[in-house]
Structures are given as C-alpha cells and as structure tokens.
Design a protein around this nucleic acid. Sequence first.
DNA 1: GTTTGTTTAGTCTCGA
DNA 2: TCGAGACTAAACAAAC
Length: 307
Amino acid sequence: MPRPGRNTYSDQKPPYSYISLTAMAIQSCPEKMLPLSEIYKFIMDRFPYYRDNTQRWQNSLRHNLSFNDCFIKIPRRPDQPGKGSFWALHPSCGDMFENGSFLRRRKRFKVMMIMAAQEHLAQSKLSDAAHYLQQQAKLRLSALAATSTHLPQISSYNLGVSQPSTFKHPFAIENIIAREFKVPGSPSMSAGYPMHNQLTAAWPHMYNTMVDSVSPISMRGDYGAFSMPLKSVCHGGQTLPAIPVPIKPTPTLVALPGGLTPHIPAFLSNSYQSLSPTSPQTATSRSSPSTPGETHTNPTVQSVVVH
DNA sequence: GTTTGTTTAGTCTCGA
DNA sequence: TCGAGACTAAACAAAC
C-alpha cells in the first residue's frame, strides 16, 4: 500500500479512500467541520487528480458522507444562510484506519444500536428488550464517566480557541499528510473529537434533545427541530461516551415499555442556549420551524457504534 | 437551475 | 472462495 507522499500526488490518484480524504478535509479545519463545498475545495486544492471528473468523484464523496456513519451532519443555523449542512467526523471513528491503510478500513464504522435493539425486540419479549437497553445504557454511561477524562480534546467550535491536546486523531491531517503538508490556517490543530463539554457548548440543542431522548420513551411523538438520535458509542469493544449525532432523524425507534431513565451526566444537561458549531452566538436550528428553546424530543434510543 | 443529500444497485478489490 | 469495504453510476427529493 503506497504511503502518503510528501507532496501532492500530481495527477495520480492519491492512495486515500474518499472517506479518508473527507476526513482529512474536516480535520484540517479548526472547527472540525466543513460544508460540502469546502470539502470539495480542500480535496481539489491538494490533489490535482480530483480537479477532473468532478461530477464523478463528488457524487461518490456525497454518497460516502451519507452512507458512512463516521460522518455526521450538522445543520446550519438560520442566520447562516447557505446551501447544505456542515459535516464532521463521528467522535468514535478514530481508528478506522488503524492498519495504516488509508484506502481500506479495518471495518466499516457503523451505528448499530437501533438495529440491535430492534433485532432484540424481534427475538424476545418487550420487557426483555427494555432490560437489554437499560443494561446497555448503564454500561455506556458508566464507561462514559470512567473514560471522559482521558478522551481527546479538540478545538472549540468556532470559539477561536484551540484547546491543548496530546491526542492526534488518526484522521488529523497532520497524522495523515501533515508530515507532508503544512496546513494553512490550522496552526494548532489539535485533532478531532468533539468532546462533551465542547459539544455541549457548541450544540446545546443536541444535548438538550439528547437528555430528552433518554427520558421515558413514551416521548412526545413529534420530530421537532433538533430531532436527532442519541448515539452512544461503543468503540472496539470499549465503551465510549455518547455523542448525539444528527444524522438521520429517522422515526425508527424502540419504545421502552418500562421507560428508560438512566442517569444523565451533568454535562449533558446544558441549557438550551448560545453557541452553534460555527458561531458563538445564539443557536437555533434552520431545520426547526419552531420556537427556539422549545424542547423537542427525538423518540430514538441510544445506539451503539461498533467496529 | 444548481447544489446538496439520500438511496439503490452493480462492480471491483482486498483480506481472511 | 467468500464476505466486506470501496468505488461508481444513477435516480430522486429538497433546499437554495
């Protein structure tokens, strides 16, 4: 497998999959999130190969963004007009390329909790499923408490502050190609996992929703503004903290007959206010036709990411 | 009309 | 050989 070169790959196809290219682009940005057009731009800037046949590879890239759970979509705020959403990396996609190949991952990064829960539901009584989910929630939440202090930090979302970190995201461009490139505009790229405190600041609405989402799943039936599944992440057999990711507000849900009310860490229960991923201002959602501050719930269950 | 996002389907490649 | 991941093409809908 060719190693990343020192310079651009001229007209040769770079030895990176679209996933790694996209991840590079996202990682190269201090905010760790980019709109599609910027991802295109990043790739074309660095890899001349992709200046041709743009239709083809851009379609593939979009397909990858949608198809792969390792990418999460972040809606624009209403006061940030523009097309499309921002794209970021799922916090647990870190070691997909652990084997050193940026063309082929060890295993596809996938969010499976809902499927698992549904399968479980299909195979057992509802009460069993509720118990199962409750156990999962406990496991993740306890692991969350245990691991959160060891997890990597990233730059705040557009807070203008790069937080110090020793962790290097495998997708960080400095880890992939920064050996070869100087990344303009990211002097202190400190690699990329959105952590809870930062996410809470950046996406309070998500966390708010998330808190709601784990409340008794009788739920309010609508899919409001920030309806997005709460995705806990379980990584390589290891349980990691949950990050809410607004991928697909699918109505797929698994209602817990007994009501699932795990203990929610304090950092998840931020009030609904301020910051958005891209601006230190009031967060509202473009996707929400409703009043900011209004709590919407997403009747989804926690999910598990498996590798 | 263009861009963005989702989905489906088929093919190719690689690793076990 | 087979399964899984990657790539490509295409259709379609929604947002801008």
